[in-house]
Measured scan of single mutants.
Amino acid sequence: TIEDAIKKLLKLAQKGQPYTFGDFTVTSEEEAKKLAKWLKKQL
């Protein structure tokens, strides 16, 4: 689910690992949080 993807994304971001989700490449926890907010709006 999208919720699971968001959780995984935040965990990876906390470890400092870049994470690619579709067109987004997230390289920081701050970016992960922005992406998570955006994804929730898409639901």
Rank of each mutant, 00 (worst) to 15 (best):
K33T: 07
W38V: 02
A13H: 03
L12I: 07
E30P: 03
K37E: 14
D4I: 05
T25G: 06
K7R: 09
L10R: 02
A32I: 10
S28Y: 06
L9M: 09
S28H: 01
V26W: 05
A13F: 13
Y19G: 13
L43P: 01
T25D: 05
V26A: 03
D4C: 15
S28C: 11
E31D: 12
L12S: 09
K8N: 09
Y19I: 15
A36Q: 04
E3A: 12
D23E: 11
G16R: 03
F24Y: 08
K8Q: 08
Q17N: 12
E30V: 09
L43A: 06
K41M: 12
F21N: 04
E31F: 13
E31M: 08
G22R: 01
T1A: 08
K7A: 06
T20V: 11
L43Y: 07
V26G: 01
D23L: 13
K33S: 07
L43V: 08
F24K: 00
T27S: 06
L12M: 09
K41L: 06
I2W: 13
D23T: 09
L12R: 08
E3D: 07
L12H: 05
K15S: 12
T1M: 07
Y19Q: 11
P18D: 13
K37W: 05
I6R: 00
F24T: 02
K15R: 09
K8H: 11
Q42A: 09
L43G: 02
A13I: 13
K8Y: 09
K11S: 10
L9H: 01
T1I: 06
K37Y: 08
E30A: 08
D23W: 15
Q42W: 10
F24D: 02
E30M: 07
K15F: 13
E29D: 06
K40G: 07
A36P: 01
Q42I: 12
A36D: 03
A5E: 08
L43D: 02
L39S: 00
F21L: 03
L39E: 00
V26Q: 01
K33F: 08
A13E: 01
L43C: 05
Q14I: 13
T25N: 06
Q42R: 07
K37R: 08
I6P: 00
I2V: 11
K7W: 07
T20E: 12
K37Q: 13
L43I: 10
E29K: 08
W38I: 04
Q42F: 13
K34W: 12
Q17P: 15
K8E: 09
Q42Y: 11
K7H: 03
K15D: 10
S28P: 05
Y19E: 09
K11R: 08
L35C: 10
E29G: 08
E30I: 07
E31A: 08
K8P: 01
I2R: 02
D23F: 14
K33D: 07
K41V: 05
K11F: 09
T20K: 04
K40W: 14
Y19W: 11
Q42N: 04
K7N: 09
T27I: 12
T27K: 07
K8C: 15
W38E: 03
I6C: 04
L10H: 02
E29L: 14
A32Y: 07
D23N: 07
T20W: 15
A36N: 02
G16A: 05
G22Y: 13
E3V: 13
K11V: 12
K7Y: 04
D23M: 11
E31C: 15
E29P: 11
T27E: 05
K37D: 13
K41W: 12
A13P: 02
I6D: 00
G22M: 13
A13D: 02
Q17L: 15
G16K: 03
D23C: 15
F21G: 02
A32N: 00
I2P: 01
A5F: 15
L9V: 03
K40M: 14
I6L: 11
L35M: 02
P18E: 11
T1K: 07
E3N: 04
F24N: 01
I2Q: 02
K40R: 09
K41H: 08
Q17A: 09
I6Q: 00
F21S: 03
E3S: 05
E29V: 14
T20Y: 06
L10F: 06
K37N: 10
K8L: 13
A5Q: 07
K34G: 03
Y19V: 14
V26H: 01
V26M: 03
P18Q: 09
L12Q: 05
K37A: 11
P18W: 15
K41A: 11
D23R: 02
G22W: 14
L10S: 02
A36Y: 13
K37P: 00
T25K: 05
E30T: 05
T27R: 05
